[in-house]
Simulated assay, not measured.
Amino acid sequence: MTDGARGRGAPGRPRDPGIDEAVLEVAAEQLVAGGLPALRMDALAEQVGVAKTTLYRRWPTRAHLLVAILARGQHEIGTPSTGDVRADLVTFTTRLAAALDPPLVRQLAAQLAAAVAEDPDLAAPVRELWADRRRQIGGIVEAGVERGQLRADVPVTTIVDQLAGALYYHVLVTGEPLGEAYAATLVDTVLRGALAG
């Protein structure tokens, strides 16, 4: 299908989410099949049936496309709200760990970290992706404070950084497996001293 046939040819028309989804789906398949070397913008445009300009309007560089693919794989994590701050943090951390654990995602995260260091223009979308996860964790912690499960003076930002930082450290540095047992131990360790009473 051509770029124009998908309704993206004329300036000013609303962005077609169908194109985004099709491109990200094919790009993810290429990464699974051949790793990062297989992800080429010209080949991707040809396979999806759109003009290369369509891709570059959405993702100025391959690194921006990697951000979108990584975000796509994590968008359904959700924010649990059972009324138990520990249970919610363990659930969320377990889900996030599962989303980050696949080898391809680890590879993408490492590539993005390197790309941000070299391309200041890429810093904003990458940091927004991580900031979204930090906001979700922060919301769970703040809810625990409001319910009186955590101390009123608990350093929310510090707790968020300890949880998220440990996960990304594992992904980017150690390569060790992530899982529910690790998530539960991490949450219990971080919350020690923060629990009310």
Rank of each mutant, 00 (worst) to 15 (best):
Q107K: 07
R72I: 04
L70Q: 11
L122C: 09
P103L: 00
K52E: 13
L66F: 04
L112N: 09
G139D: 10
R127A: 14
A115E: 14
P102G: 09
L96G: 01
H64C: 07
L65N: 13
L65K: 11
I69L: 10
R57Y: 11
A43M: 05
L100A: 12
L65S: 12
A131H: 15
R86H: 15
A114F: 02
I69P: 03
R106F: 03
S81P: 00
A45T: 12
A115H: 12
P103F: 01
D88H: 06
A110M: 10
R127I: 04
R106W: 04
E118H: 13
A109S: 15
A117I: 00
T53K: 13
G73A: 07
L39N: 11
R106L: 09
P120H: 09
V126T: 12
T91S: 11
V141C: 09
P102Y: 03
L104K: 03
T94D: 13
R40S: 08
R57D: 12
L104G: 10
A131E: 15
G138F: 08
A124V: 14
A68R: 06
A99W: 02
H75T: 10
R62T: 13
G49Y: 12
G34L: 04
E118V: 14
R134G: 02
T54I: 06
A113W: 04
D88T: 10
V141F: 04
A114P: 01
L70R: 05
R127P: 00
A87Q: 14
Q107P: 02
L96S: 09
A114C: 00
D101I: 03
V116Q: 06
I140F: 00
R40E: 15
T91C: 00
L129W: 09
L112S: 07
A113P: 00
Y56C: 06
A114R: 14
L66Q: 08
L96V: 06
V90E: 14
V90G: 06
L100F: 02
K52D: 10
G49C: 12
V105S: 13
T79I: 15
G138V: 10
D88N: 05
L70K: 00
I77T: 12
G49A: 10
D84K: 09
I69C: 12
V85T: 13
E46T: 12
Q107E: 15
W59E: 14
A123R: 14
R40L: 06
L66P: 13
D88G: 05
T82M: 01
E128N: 11
I69S: 02
L112E: 07
R58Y: 01
A98L: 08
